[in-house]
Design a protein around this nucleic acid. Structure first.
Length: 288
DNA sequence: CTTACGGCCTGGGTGC
DNA sequence: TGCACCCAGGCCGTAA
């Protein structure tokens, strides 16, 4: 599941191959996840890639228009759940569900593979790109602690929902939310505005620590994630709660539980991460 | 303004 | 061995 660390790893991998390259031609398979496939076939051939960036969970490939056409634009790629953006020599076997092929001027190929087609791809003019990106929240690795505190306290919602909300913080998904909350010993159903200063301080530190460690280990390969060279990450070996329902907490040996919060499976330790009062009451009544 | 929920999509796992 | 069913979850549109 590509979240910030996975998308960052892919971006760094692509940075080794793509800047300076020109697209020679484009080949498309299924296109129901592409905003305007005809525009991609029409606009991209002949264009040079200037840079590859990550923005939240998005990859942005910045392009220079064809000679004589002037200006710049970007290709925006969201990997969804199972998206893979890989460069390889063209003779490499084509993985099933590969729907986009860009031939590059150094003989290599850039391919997009997406089993479930939850990803999204579109072209963005510079103006459209800037107004689109403005809607998103802070990058958790660039935020100051003060900014982070203000963002979390700004809205009345469960901390799990706030961490997942791309308009509060950009780039965090289900895995890194649960891993950060476990390390900070905060229950996913706590309300953001009710977190104590000390808890917010711990959460800021653990979010950054978890994301940095995950980037260092090149992301979490839980199902389909691979980097720009087709290789798996290793942070899944460091997961402490994600997908560990029924197993023992690494800290206190209590049994890890799973609840649905904000519509997502949420894994937590019932002993390390104390439930908020309103939830404890409700549980008591229900279980009676 | 807020939160909640269904639908999108495929493969892997489970149970009968 | 086959088949129905459920689940993984980011995001968007719609509803409350």
């Amino acid at each position: 599941m590509p979240e910030l660390p996975e998308v960052e790893t892919v971006a760094r991998g692509l940075q080794a191959f793509l800047p300076g390259r020109r697209i020679l031609n484009v080949r498309l398979g299924k296109t129901d996840f592409i905003d305007d496939p005809a525009a991609i076939e029409r606009e991209l051939p002949g264009c040079r890639i200037l840079a590859v960036r990550r923005f939240g969970k998005f990859l942005l490939l910045d392009f220079e228009r064809k000679p004589g056409h002037g200006g710049q634009f970007s290709l925006q790629v969201h990997l969804g759940m199972t998206g893979q953006l890989v460069t390889c020599p063209p003779e490499v076997r084509i993985a099933p569900h590969t729907h986009l092929f860009f031939a590059l001027d150094d003989g290599r190929e850039l391919r997009y593979t997406d089993i479930r087609r939850f990803g999204r791809i579109r072209l963005l003019s510079n103006d459209a790109r800037e107004s689109f990106l403005e809607e998103f929240g802070l990058d958790p690795l660039e935020a100051t602690e003060e900014n982070f505190h203000v963002s979390i306290r700004s809205r009345r919602a469960r901390i799990k929902a706030l961490l997942l909300d791309q308009h509060v913080l950009r780039g965090i998904g289900n895995i890194y939310t649960d891993e950060s909350l476990w390390r900070a010993r905060i229950h996913p159903m706590r309300l953001g505005e009710k977190l104590k200063g000390e808890e917010l301080h711990r959460l800021f530190r653990t979010v950054q620590h978890v994301l940095r460690e995950a980037i260092r280990l090149r992301g979490s390969s839980v199902s389909d994630y691979v980097d720009a060279n087709g290789e798996q990450g290793e942070f899944q070996l460091r997961h402490r709660v994600y997908m560990r329902e029924g197993k023992k907490c690494f800290r206190c040996a209590a049994v890890i539980r799973r609840v649905i919060v904000a519509g997502r499976s949420s894994y937590f330790c019932p002993r390390c991460q104390t439930a908020p009062r309103q939830v404890r009451k409700k549980t008591k009544v229900n279980s009676k």
